[in-house]
């Protein structure tokens, strides 16, 4: 869009400028995003909300460097990612961004520890250092006793914890979480959210999460609502007048 491109400020973990994404389906072209400009400060905890088909996932993929915008720019840690080649993008995914998926996406043939150390191996860390750090991270997420377990031997909540440890492997600037509680029951989901919030506070890692989970809104610093490919509104948590406690029976 028409905003002047301001000199790059330094405290943004993620910034998008007029991001547009157009898909061509046969003869028709469909806009998934129609000019989204958002700024996420370093250390913030952001939730992206929106109905399915709103462009939420597309925006998410853009921020993650998984997809390129048709128009507009995406800056991650002050770097315009549209100019990066395949090697640089791989490096960015490996070192700057940690991904958490709804379906956990652990590599089934690897133990919790090996899953966690894989990004460090990609990053060129020595085996022993990687193992030490892997154990440290798994302990941090509360799985210090289960480092040798395979994903299938772990519960959903435990698998998601492994995924969080893996996302933290290379001390990323941001963690992108796509419906991280979507496949978990209420109580486990709540534990995962609390864990993310704790890591956000303790490690200062920026967390951006796409979610439908109202419990998630409660811990977010800001909520970005997406509708029809545009930013509908951005709310500070203080502005939220949801009484979350009454929405979900299990919370006390």
């Amino acid at each position: 869009m028409a905003e002047a491109i301001a000199p790059v400020a330094t405290e943004y973990a993620v910034k998008t400028l007029g991001v547009t994404k157009q898909y061509t389906m046969g003869k028709e072209s469909v806009y998934a995003l129609r000019g989204v400009s958002v700024e996420v400060h370093s250390g913030e905890y952001i939730s992206i909300m929106g109905p399915s088909g709103s462009g939420k996932s597309t925006l998410f993929n853009m921020i993650g460097g998984l997809d390129k915008p048709t128009e507009g720019k995406v800056y991650i840690d002050e770097v315009d990612i549209s100019g990066l080649d395949a090697y640089e993008l791989a490096w960015l995914r490996c070192r700057k961004i940690g991904y958490i998926f709804q379906t956990f996406n652990l590599i089934p043939v690897m133990t919790a520890l090996e899953n966690c150390t894989l990004p460090m191996i990609f990053a060129g860390m020595g085996t022993q250092d990687a193992l030490d750090k892997g154990v440290e991270l798994l302990t941090l997420v509360g799985l210090g006793e289960r480092v040798r377990h395979k994903p299938l031997e772990l519960s959903g909540g435990q698998q998601q914890r492994v995924a969080i440890a893996r996302a933290l492997a290379n001390d990323p600037a941001i963690i992108l979480a796509d419906e991280p509680t979507g496949n978990l029951d209420l109580k486990t989901g709540k534990e995962i959210i609390e864990l993310l919030r704790r890591l956000n506070k303790e490690k200062g890692v920026t967390i951006i999460s796409a979610t439908h989970d109202l419990k998630m809104l409660d811990v977010s610093d800001r909520i970005i609502w997406i509708r029809d490919g545009r930013v509908d509104k951005i709310e500070q948590r203080a502005e939220l007048d949801l009484e979350l406690g009454t929405l979900e029976g299990e919370e006390v």
Binding site: S42, D77, E78, E88, A90, W91, L92
Partner: peptide
């Protein structure tokens, strides 16, 4: 985190998968 310089040149290319 990002205060040390406009770390634009921080992007590197080296990613490994040892045999």
């Amino acid at each position: 985190m990002a205060t040390n310089a406009v770390a634009r040149k921080g992007i590197k290319r080296q990613i490994k998968l040892p045999n």
